[in-house]
Design a protein around this nucleic acid. Sequence first.
DNA 1: AAGGAATGCCGGAACGTTCCGGCGTCCGCG
DNA 2: CGCGGACGCCGGAACGTTCCGGCATTCCTT
Lengths: 347, 347
Amino acid sequence: MATKVNGSSGKDLDGGAVTILDLARELRLSKTTVADALAGSGRVSTETRDRVRELAEKWGYVSNRAARSLRTRSTGALGLYVPPTVRTAPFYMEFALGGAERAASAGFDLTLFAQRPARRRDFGVDGAVVIDMSAADELPRQLVAAGVPVVAAGRILGHEGEHAVIETPDREMAHQMFELMRSRGARRIAFVTPLHDFAVAWAVDVSEAYVAWCGQADQEVLMRSISVAATDTELAAAIDEVVRIPGVDALVLAAEGWAARAKPMLTAHGVDVGGSFQLGSLAGDPLTDGADAAISRVDLGARAFGVDAFDLLLDILSGAADRAAVRVHPARLVPASVHPGAARRDD
Amino acid sequence: MATKVNGSSGKDLDGGAVTILDLARELRLSKTTVADALAGSGRVSTETRDRVRELAEKWGYVSNRAARSLRTRSTGALGLYVPPTVRTAPFYMEFALGGAERAASAGFDLTLFAQRPARRRDFGVDGAVVIDMSAADELPRQLVAAGVPVVAAGRILGHEGEHAVIETPDREMAHQMFELMRSRGARRIAFVTPLHDFAVAWAVDVSEAYVAWCGQADQEVLMRSISVAATDTELAAAIDEVVRIPGVDALVLAAEGWAARAKPMLTAHGVDVGGSFQLGSLAGDPLTDGADAAISRVDLGARAFGVDAFDLLLDILSGAADRAAVRVHPARLVPASVHPGAARRDD
DNA sequence: AAGGAATGCCGGAACGTTCCGGCGTCCGCG
DNA sequence: CGCGGACGCCGGAACGTTCCGGCATTCCTT
């Protein structure tokens, strides 16, 4: 009862993409058998399977994603959301590409969400990773409401327990940074961190870690806050302030890129960076802060972080991990190379 | 003849997502009418349409992407491929997010392709943008072979005419940069560019532009090539060489981030960057090279570039542009702020 | 040799949407 | 009063896949 009468040989690559039915017709098999042969499911003789696969290869058959998705209720894509505030940083690009790599290795595509959509929508993903989300952002709860498994890279303040989380040990790394500097002779370590209204976990964590360390190390709290997207002018103003504080012999900056930008400013003030004055970055990717051996940095391993985040997501999808699982992605402290002529006081 | 008998009220949010059929049953309408009411197509009374939309809103109906995709043969997603060699640069993140924004505003998702897939696959996109591709990369032709419209951001050497292209005026901007420096007194401008085996259009273009300018300006060609992913050591070696050339009073670096990294190296050599010595970046994004007012830079407008690239792709999809269209995305020369005390020779 | 199990293959139904054609009803106009 | 057409709504088919159950045929077992 088909409307179109198909010729004998077939192989109609003309109309559009080749389907399972095309293969079945050509091989005089049923679609079920062809599908089974291709998927390796069902009961098919080895000979038949080989015939099917050979023709599929020859004709360039590709399984229609939409049809499969419709039938299986899985999309074959994972989502990633990077909030607008911070997305210029190379860190997120590395993270995203690590994620894309991991997703691809599991046969998933990576869909990048732009802004949060105005209207409710079909996200079109089997799961999603959101990174460094402010508590105010609604996207995670929209995802959760839509039944999409979510992994938060960096926990979301006030939303703990609502989804899985993977974190870098920010407090611990900050602590290590301060300890390193002290062990290298620093006595008064200043700290520049994002403004308090930047309600993202890592920023809060490192600030608290600094204050805690000061208490423990019996050091005065020398903290300045600037916008996480600080311009050079803003950053320079903070540096000016810090330099003016008497006896400051070390400075740690919380956000990516700050240290590299601050260094020339410090130098302009006559500060011997890498020598008598220590400079550190708590989010130092190899590209910016890390390019300078005079800066101690915390290497967050952005790429591997992305891989790990999507790894967790995949584990959740496969049932190997709980939907509220919490994991830690290791970071690494990379001390500045000690300047040979540096004044170094060993207590 | 339905296998399942549905109760009177319905509203079964229990099973899974709510479908058009659920709405139709509840409203005692046919699926066609409901679909028409939601899509705004067909002939539906205003009253009915409102009733449908109200219930759809109330029940949180979202159109099933897979089903629609299957029927309409369009996926609702656009692809982006960033080659592995260069992807650490913030430029590409900005570009990608600009693209995601533009795609989203047209109702498309953005799928990030990871590595090129080993096997032939269904790309699952309606069109794709590839950026700064080396001629050797096979992905574009795979896409073209699969019938996917492709926009190359930065033309692909040796593949002109096979797909649409959007470009920044790299030669022109390089020329402007050199002219700026000369107008500000530079007499011997050195140039550092990626190695020749980095067969990406912009790198070739700016190198050629430099040589051409030298010829026209009657200046000796002072060019050094390093890996596009040069380490600090490699970059420093090139800088060392450049500094050793007698009379060099300006340096232009081709790739993103190089200038910012080179500046401290130059300073270490006692060079007065921003004063008697001019430094320029041909791919200076605001974050890295652009953060330093002493560096002249070409602002490629990464974000807007991404928007424009996807704009072109969307135009092609809508038929408003040819599949081999060529467009130019404007760039902008941002001169270094002239240092007050700088030695400035006005011819 | 007869019963049952394994083997190889197959038809339909479903997934949720879009789209084509059609079918009553009612209005307006000559 | 009759008729053409607009209006409001509808049924079915199709998109390409997966999956459930089933039906011959062959093989093994006792």
